[in-house]
């Protein structure tokens, strides 16, 4: 009885540490969904700019709160991640970079270029926002 309790469990979703490629894959989907929400916010912002000055002022106010900045930063990070991972998908679609060793390298290229682009873009946008 005691022995059976020590047996390893089969990988169960809640306790299973996802391998990096799986983690990056689900992140691509989740950032995609977040960006869909962001696109609707962009549409609402444009609509407010054209048809409702009151609503536009509210947007302006919201984007300048801490939470608003955080959301904008989150969308930016989601965008650059989805951008880099998406380009890797397009490369894969041509049949290149599919070997295990290429995969290992491109995982980190995607992660670092997403972070780097986000950092650069954030610094650039901060200049524009002030």
């Amino acid at each position: 009885m005691a022995d059976t309790q020590k047996r390893p469990l089969s990988p169960h979703l809640q306790i299973y540490r996802l391998p990096l490629p799986a983690l990056l894959s689900i992140t691509h989907r989740m950032t995609g969904m977040a960006l869909s929400v962001g696109l609707f916010v962009l549409a609402a912002w444009l609509y407010a700019a054209a048809f409702s000055p009151k609503c536009f002022a509210k947007f302006h106010e919201l984007f300048n709160t801490g939470l608003g900045r955080f959301a904008l930063f989150g969308w930016m990070l989601a965008f650059f991640y989805h951008f880099c991972a998406g380009i890797r998908h397009l490369v894969w679609d041509t049949g290149t970079g599919l070997s295990k060793s290429a995969y290992r390298i491109s995982n980190w290229i995607v992660i670092f270029s997403a972070l780097l682009l986000t950092a650069g873009a954030w610094l650039y946008a901060r200049g524009g926002l002030q």
Binding site: F40, L42, A43, A44, L46, Y47, A50
Partner: peptide, 12 residues
């Protein structure tokens, strides 16, 4: 949402 955004762009 696409329609609303496009209308906004045209209007602006």
């Amino acid at each position: 949402a696409f329609g609303a955004a496009l209308a906004a762009v045209l209007s602006l």
